[in-house]
Amino acid sequence: MVALLAIFVALPIFVLLPWFAWRYRYGAKSSRYTPKWAFSRTLEVAAWSGPAVIVALLAVLVWRSTHALDPYKPLASGTPALRVLVIGYDWKWLFIYPDLGVASIGVLPLPAGQPVAMQLTSATVMQSLQIPALGSQIYAMGGMVTQLHLQADKPGRFMGENTMYNGDGFHEQRFTAVAMTPDAFNDWVKHTRAHGMALDASTLKLISEPTTRAQLAAALGQRQASDGGIYFNHATSDIFSNVVMATMNGAAAEPQTAGLAATSTATHVVLNATPPSPEQKP
């Protein structure tokens, strides 16, 4: 719709400009020549009002669509949203399902047909989470929490990525969003609860190193699952809020310790016995 309206402004230019250029070329002596003609009220009014009317129409569309597609707006649905807490590390995303006690890296399992309510933060630099096929993206920033609501209507596999450059492993910070039937999703949760790695302090410390997912899998001493995912249990929302607080307090960012920037996060996380609730971004 927006594109259509924009074409309405552009079309006269594409048609008239080549025509004028040809019709009034120097060699075409028969065409009319008005060297002093410099003003026409009608044409001036048309030149201003055409684009103005279209922008006015666009403004209405933009106002509506911006509110309709606001990533902070919960999706209307009969089923309650699945909460997912997302932590951006260098160079992988950690997805925590606080109500299910599981977490994953590299794969984002989702139940199809159920809305997902994400909260995001970064343990390092700015990152931006996007799953192009599911629409929308939002930045994740250290010490702050952003939100993103999305939903996969049908089962499927969708590429997800970080779009904000954050260093050498940037191009490998991808994941697969796997939308599955509710039954398959429940099976995955059960399986992960039973067989996943414990998301404990030492694991978190390894995750917070600046490594790609493949390097992390090697460091964790396990091969990635066949779908490229690393799955954890014993995941709680405290992990997320601890990262937010630790980053905000500077535990994660001692100056001049590059390359090991986020290493102290994990220790801080476990030391912090009474985690506060996630901060909303002002």
Binding site: V9, P12, I13, L16, L17, F20, A21, Y24, R25, Y26, S31, R32, Y33, T34, P35, W37, S40, L43, A47, W48, G50, P51, A52, V55
Partner: peptide, 20 residues
């Protein structure tokens, strides 16, 4: 976009009935 569009229209109208 409005003033920018106007500019392009005005350049086009400068070419109109010119000797390009």
């Amino acid at each position: 976009g409005i003033p920018t569009g106007v500019k392009i229209y005005d350049w086009m109208l400068t070419m109109f009935r010119g000797r390009i």
